[in-house]
């Protein structure tokens, strides 16, 4: 699971949970692999993201890797920034670990890169 996907997951499916976002991450296996840099794609993607949640998540797994926490107004023309953003949202992948509901502490296991967000009957 990439941070791009983490950025849209919520635990608000749990009964009583209001926001459930962003989920905490306890990663036990992180893989960084090279992905072709496509500046147009990243430029389009950035405004669709909760930027603070991206930075918070990246930092919590030790992969902020120099990414600025504030979006500069001219980020679209800042190649260095776009490359760092590309790295953090596309190249860092959580293979094993847990996602954690910020309100209840309920853990959602990540197995083989796939977060399991299914709840038991009595949790919904």
């Amino acid at each position: 699971m990439k941070l791009l996907t983490h950025n849209m997951l919520t635990s608000s499916i749990i009964k009583g949970v209001k926001k459930g976002f962003p989920l905490g991450i306890a990663a036990t296996d992180i893989k960084v692999s090279e992905v072709d840099f496509n500046p147009d794609f990243i430029k389009k993607m950035i405004p669709k993201l909760e930027w603070s949640a991206i930075c918070e998540a990246a930092e919590s797994i030790g992969h902020l890797d120099g990414l600025p926490k504030e979006l500069a107004p001219d980020y679209e023309t800042d190649e260095d920034f776009l490359k760092k953003a590309h790295h953090v949202i596309m190249e860092v992948e959580i293979k094993e670990g847990d996602l954690i509901c910020p309100e209840t502490g309920r853990k959602f296991p990540i197995k083989n890169g796939i977060p399991n967000m299914l709840l038991k009957e009595d949790e919904v």
């Binding site: 997951l9 499916i13 976002f21 992905v35 596309m90 977060p115 967000m117």
Partner: peptide
Amino acid sequence: DHLCEFVKGDFCKAPLESETFD
């Protein structure tokens, strides 16, 4: 895999944020 990711969940009660997808 740079374009497709997968989440295990129920589409009748989806674990995904509101107003997220185009």
